[in-house]
Design a binder for these strands. Structure first.
Lengths: 207, 207
DNA sequence: AACAAAATATGAGCACGCTCACTTTTCTCT
DNA sequence: AGAGAAAAGTGAGCGTGCTCATATTTTGTT
């Protein structure tokens, strides 16, 4: 059974590899599931034995890229300056890691990441959200904000995050300067709102 | 030429009426464009002489409902208590006016309202965004915040607004209490962030 | 090795949103 | 009123994402 298992994961990997190449080269709508199956050397139907939908493939690619970046960020030394800068670095680095996947972001945002369309089975979109929120929560708690964080706060954070990702996916300014500005202001706004969590009144500010 | 014009607007109205009934009764995916055309007494192709896409019909329905509510709100007496309460009332009333259109919101959010998918021609989605932002800006400026408001601020507002609408569209709590809580906290967060706009430093707070 | 059962692969076919070459209706001008 | 122009309507047909009955391969048992 080892052989089949290897074969199976190999097939899945081949789909993922092929998909990342085709999507980057020909875009989302320019890549049909038939194209993709053909390029991966399988039948169309087989594709849907491995992924529930075309969007699920996009979600898998995004999840993998963000997961890699998140590990890198957690291991790295770029933390500790201030909560604002840490969140900024986490998000900005995440966007950079998604550079080649930009054409694929739009459908993923619509169907998988949106608070709408609650997916019945645990899909890659949930993993993306959970992973990112976990990383952000860790940063916040490490910065001294007392836990546990209200669910509403993280809900609002996720909305703001999606806003940035959406904006970035369509940002055609030279070096994504517009996204940088939006990210900067959004981060400021969110961290400022956390100050209210330190207690009923926040008379004793350290910085 | 008056006759044809009447015929044309009548046909469009018939499409809109039929669509609002069918979408409310059978949902978004349960209503095919063929169904819709049949029920409206026209051919499938005719439908697309009046609307660029199925989603454009949804956008039209939403735009009409929100436009009605916006007029009602502007004429009404429910303003002036505080900026926070005014924005709350504006948004919450807008949601109530969309009650029957809930099944239609999800596709509209994806394709028309999202910051992604910039539409080439001026479509109903742009009108929705522009109309709502205009109303909010008026509330803000009337409350004493000095204009003009930074584009980034309104960009962030729009993100927060979409977050609320998305959440509400899928909110199954008894009386949408969860959405109420989210709206409350979001409004607080946003209005608080406006206080920073009163100048470089905000040493002189009136309230 | 032989055979049954489970797992996997296949591609013709479905329903969908949408298009476009064509027909029908309406308007304009003499 | 009649003819030509313009506008509006039509539905067969296209390409898409996805399904499902069937065929093929792999696994487990004797």
């Amino acid at each position: 059974m080892r052989v089949t298992l290897q074969t199976k994961t190999a097939t899945k990997e081949r789909i993922v590899d092929t998909a990342s190449k085709l999507f980057a080269r020909r875009g989302w709508e320019g890549t049909t599931t038939r194209d993709l199956a053909l390029a991966a050397g399988i039948a169309t139907g087989t594709l849907f034995n491995y992924f529930q939908s075309k969007e699920a493939i996009a979600a898998e690619l995004i999840a993998a890229a963000l997961s890699r970046w998140q590990r890198e960020f957690a291991d790295g030394e770029q933390r500790g300056q201030s909560l604002e800068e840490d969140i900024f670095a986490l998000v900005w680095g995440g966007l950079k890691s998604l550079r080649d996947l930009r054409p694929v972001l739009s459908p993923a945002l619509d169907t998988v990441l949106s608070p709408l369309a609650r997916s019945s089975p645990a899909c890659a979109g949930d993993a993306i959200r959970a992973g990112h929120l976990e990383a952000v929560e860790r940063l916040i708690l490490d910065s001294g904000v007392p836990g546990p964080l209200p669910a509403l706060t993280m809900q609002i954070y996720w909305t703001l995050y999606l806003g940035i990702v959406s904006y970035w996916a369509a940002d055609d300014s030279p070096h994504q300067e517009d996204t940088l500005a939006l990210l900067d202001q959004t981060t400021k706004l969110f961290t400022a709102s956390l100050r209210g969590l330190k207690g009923v009144g926040n008379e004793h500010e350290s910085e």
